[in-house]
């Protein structure tokens, strides 16, 4: 399995750490109801098919990546940085 890191190019899966669904990006507000936090932390669509999840290029550029891929075929459609240069305000 190989991921095409937007900063480093195609790299072996060994360089990456997998975290979980991209839903981890949608952190509820501190005062959100308990149900929202339960959903955020635990409940998952867990699709058999296309999904988006989070990977960390731990042994590379240390970017967190949002990967669009298929959980049935393992086909990888897109790999995007979680922190876009615009949002990061000057991050390389």
């Amino acid at each position: 399995m190989r991921l095409n890191c937007p900063h480093c190019g195609p790299r072996d899966r060994r360089e990456f750490y997998y975290y979980g669904a991209a839903a981890y990006l949608d952190r509820p507000s501190p005062d959100a109801p308990a149900q929202a936090w339960d959903d955020y932390l635990h409940n998952r669509d867990n699709p058999a098919g296309m999904t988006q999840d989070l990977w960390y290029h731990e042994q590379g550029c240390t970017a967190w990546l949002k990967v669009t891929r298929n959980t049935v075929t393992h086909e990888i459609i897109a790999v995007d940085a979680v922190a876009t240069p615009k949002a990061s305000g000057g991050m390389a």
Binding site: R13, Y18, T51, D53
Partner: peptide, 13 residues
Amino acid sequence: DFYASYASRGNLP
């Protein structure tokens, strides 16, 4: 293998 999958097969690492 540490990535979400329904493929019932894994990879070399």
